[in-house]
Design a protein around this nucleic acid. Structure first.
Length: 503
RNA sequence: GGCCCCUUCGUCUAGCGGCCUAGGAUGCCACCCUUUCAAGGUGGAGACACGGGUUCGAGUCCCGUAGGGGCUACCA
């Protein structure tokens, strides 16, 4: 029986799916589960399907499908069949398939695998209190009685007749055989009194009709795995293979990561992104997020931490997924993101940064941005860091004001010394034929040595004078981009401000 | 409570009985480099939850305990 675990030798074409409920913004946990299904489909040249499970009308939130699609688009996970893409096995929204579920629910009743249950909500609540669950009181009533109750217009649900004895063994790709005692399970509701199916019925009907070869879903579905197996058996359909995915826990390892975590901050006071739009807003690159997500619960191997989605596709396999849940290692994403920014193409990064600068109120000269970006690449953790680091390049230069003395004057320096440096720098830089940063560096190093200051002291005052900031891209590169006239003008401004304050 | 799953450095992980004196990454610390901030380089501290077995040999297999997670809805 060793071949029961094989995931790639099945003769069925690989078709995986992500089947979220449209209940609002996309949670990163669901996306990770989807990612593994997607990687597996791509690895095997199969199809990845998006199906919307909107059988709970109360929880459905309008606009959710757009949010789901936006998340997939942003991450670059292409969908082969779905509500937007269409496909041969649609519709891909469950509320549009009600008749199908009703047909099969009826079939199960007629064939003795399910029955109508007329218990009221009050009765159910009482039973839960008394015996801990539904007592199967309608399971074996005569058909005539059931028909009579229905004829009298009493609302009912259809429940599955779970075998009362024996065990059900499920084969999970990630953890092998899992055995359940049948008497532990209740007669689950298959069709609700409003005519909508529950997940238990709907997903099986759909996965069958949509030819899904591998069902991937979060571990919280494992307890109902035996129920699903029994339903598949009752229906007599060929079962797909199953993989129950580990989930993310809170960064501290306590409790499952939930949407609510978005409201909280980690130990460093940084808010923890949990919803896909929060990753976008926080300035993470989609490639970094994909790398991050695929490196939890699975790994590329070769001690390689940084790899592309294409590389992951070449190696991914469901059976290599780690069965253990994991704390959400969000700190690693900051590092990965900075690595991706460092390696990014200047044009691409410029296009990403431009709207951020513009949103911050700057007018961006694209040519200038192209020159600034290389200076930024090793300095940005998030694309949003561009604003405090380099916004000054795109501000209105004519209204530039010299920074206050406390920024101009470096450690272990005083106003007079700083003024001396700025005066000297003015003369030295003015005399330069080339305003290239290396020429500036050479001249200013020589000057610093001549007047007996350290490079840091001299360059620091200049940095403050021309950028207005304590922290900035390298000073001489900055001046080169600002140009000689503007740089000298700013140094004069700083000098005036300093003298005005220190005299 | 019952049932199911999980358990290697703080965290993400490698390890599929001897290659492990347990490897990598991140985070942290130190040093180097250095015009700020970073980046980069070098080094350091840091783990097989516990107890029994099985075996010549166990991080790797089995059982138990503990801890963690989940399910126990006419939600998914």
């Amino acid at each position: 029986m060793g071949d029961r675990n094989l995931t790639s030798d099945s003769d069925r074409p690989v078709r995986t799916r992500y089947a979220p409920s449209p209940t609002g913004p996309q949670h990163i946990g669901g996306i990770r589960t989807a990612l593994f299904a997607w990687l597996f489909a791509r690895r095997h040249g199969g199809q990845f399907i998006l199906r919307i499970e909107d059988t709970d009308q109360k929880r459905t939130i309008p606009g959710s499908i757009e949010m789901i699609l936006d998340a997939f688009d942003w991450l670059g996970m292409d969908i082969d069949e779905g509500p937007r893409e269409g496909g041969a096995y649609g519709p891909y929204v469950q509320s549009e398939r009600l008749e199908l579920y009703q047909t099969w629910a009826k079939w199960l009743v007629e064939n003795g695998y399910a029955y109508k249950c007329f218990a009221t909500a009050e009765e159910l609540a009482e039973m839960r209190k008394q015996v801990g669950g539904y007592d199967r009181r309608y399971r074996d009533i005569p058909t005539a009685e059931s028909d009579d109750l229905e004829a009298r217009g009493l609302p009912y649900v259809i429940r599955f007749k779970m075998p009362a004895t024996g065990v059900t063994i499920g084969e999970d790709i990630i953890r092998g055989e899992v055995e359940f005692a049948n008497d532990q399970l209740q007669d689950a509701v298959l069709l609700k009194s409003d005519g909508f199916p529950t997940y238990h019925l709907a997903h099986i009907v759909d996965d069958h009709y949509m030819r899904i070869s591998h069902i991937t879903r979060a571990v919280e579905w494992l307890p109902s795995f035996p129920l699903h197996i029994q339903i598949w058996n009752a229906l007599g359909w060929e079962k797909p293979q199953f993989a129950h995915m580990p989930v993310f826990l809170n960064p501290n390892g306590k409790g499952k990561l939930s949407k609510r975590n978005a409201q909280f901050t980690d130990a460093d006071g940084k808010s923890v992104p949990v919803l896909v739009h929060e990753f976008i807003e926080a300035g993470y690159l989609p490639a970094a997020v994909m790398n991050f997500l695929s490196n939890i619960g699975w790994n590329f191997g070769d001690n390689e931490e940084i790899f592309s989605t294409a590389q992951a596709i070449e190696r991914f396999d469901l059976k290599d997924v780690n069965p253990a849940n994991s704390a959400y290692p969000i700190a690693k994403l900051d590092w990965l993101n900075s690595q991706y920014i460092q390696r990014a193409d200047v044009d691409e990064l410029s296009q990403l940064l431009q709207p951020i600068l513009e949103a911050a109120g700057y007018t961006v000269d694209e040519a200038r941005l192209q020159r600034v970006v290389p200076l930024l690449q090793v300095r940005l953790k998030s694309t949003h860091d561009v604003v405090p680091m380099a916004g000054f390049f795109f501000a209105d230069w004519s209204s530039f004001e010299a920074p206050p003395a406390e920024i101009l004057i470096q450690r272990k320096m005083d106003g007079d010394g700083t003024a001396e440096i700025l005066r000297g720098a003015l003369l030295v830089l003015q005399a330069l034929d080339s305003f290239k940063h290396d020429a500036q560096y050479a001249a200013m190093s020589k000057f610093a040595k001549a007047i007996g200051y350290k490079n840091g002291q001299v360059f620091g005052s200049l940095r403050a004078a021309v950028s207005g900031q304590k922290v900035s891209p390298p000073t001489f590169e900055t001046m080169e981009i600002l140009g000689k006239d503007e740089s000298l003008r700013r140094i004069k401004l700083a000098l005036q401000a300093l003298i005005g304050q220190t005299d």
